[in-house]
Simulated assay, not measured.
Amino acid sequence: MHPRRKKRLTVVTSILVGFAVVLGFVLYALSNTVDLFFTPSEIVQGKKETGEKPVIGQRIRVGGLVVPGTVSRDPKSLKVSFQLVDTGPIITVKYDGILPDLFREGQGIVANGILVGDTVLEANEVLAKHDENYMPKEIADAVGQYHDKPSYSKEQLENKN
């Protein structure tokens, strides 16, 4: 092989190996920061398409409605515990911090945290959804017993517009 070709081949091979190493590091770093989204039903029963269930210790994001009457606060600290539901099983969320202003029973929320039990999430962040006026009919029917639809007086509706 000609020395010039051998040098080109070495350079190209080095570049490809370097690119593969960098890509490997990027994928490894991203795998540690990815939060997969689950609903309470999917945590207990698994995803419909794949049957995938989160494992204990996995960082996940859970979305659902706060079950009325389940919010319990520790009077000596900022610890809060409440239950979430979508269309089936209920899970418990434990959070230590200040809840968002829009948080209330019957409200849709998203919680980020670590699954510490089969149905227990230890959240490090709780986000309240801004607007619950729209919900797909199937979900609204399924969670109807847990969902408090906002009711506005005629005066409040006029002030909104």
Score class of each variant (00 low, 15 high):
152 Y>F: 15
14 S>P: 07
145 Q>S: 06
47 K>E: 15
10 T>N: 11
161 N>C: 05
105 E>N: 03
93 V>P: 01
65 L>V: 15
42 E>L: 06
158 E>N: 08
90 I>E: 12
80 V>E: 06
27 L>Q: 13
22 V>G: 02
122 E>R: 01
38 F>N: 04
51 G>V: 10
44 V>I: 15
92 T>Q: 05
1 M>S: 15
160 K>R: 07
21 V>K: 01
71 V>Q: 03
70 T>P: 09
50 T>W: 04
68 P>K: 01
55 V>Q: 08
29 A>T: 08
74 D>S: 02
138 E>S: 07
3 P>D: 15
129 K>W: 12
118 D>A: 07
139 I>Y: 10
42 E>V: 09
103 F>E: 06
17 V>K: 00
110 V>Q: 05
85 V>T: 15
63 G>S: 03
60 I>Y: 01
75 P>V: 13
5 R>W: 09
117 G>D: 13
63 G>W: 01
18 G>A: 09
160 K>E: 13
68 P>E: 05
126 V>S: 03
80 V>Y: 00
145 Q>C: 07
120 V>G: 04
1 M>N: 11
106 G>I: 02
79 K>N: 08
7 K>T: 14
49 E>R: 04
54 P>R: 04
72 S>Y: 10
101 D>S: 07
60 I>G: 04
49 E>G: 02
68 P>Q: 02
54 P>T: 06
2 H>G: 13
72 S>V: 14
154 K>L: 15
6 K>I: 14
110 V>K: 01
151 S>V: 14
49 E>P: 02
14 S>M: 14
149 K>M: 14
78 L>F: 13
33 T>N: 09
46 G>K: 04
72 S>R: 15
126 V>R: 00
15 I>N: 13
129 K>H: 11
55 V>A: 08
59 R>S: 12
84 L>V: 07
29 A>D: 10
108 G>R: 02
54 P>N: 04
86 D>R: 05
137 K>Q: 14
56 I>E: 10
70 T>E: 07
126 V>I: 15
107 Q>M: 07
110 V>A: 05
34 V>G: 00
78 L>Q: 14
80 V>P: 05
145 Q>P: 05
43 I>Y: 03
1 M>G: 15
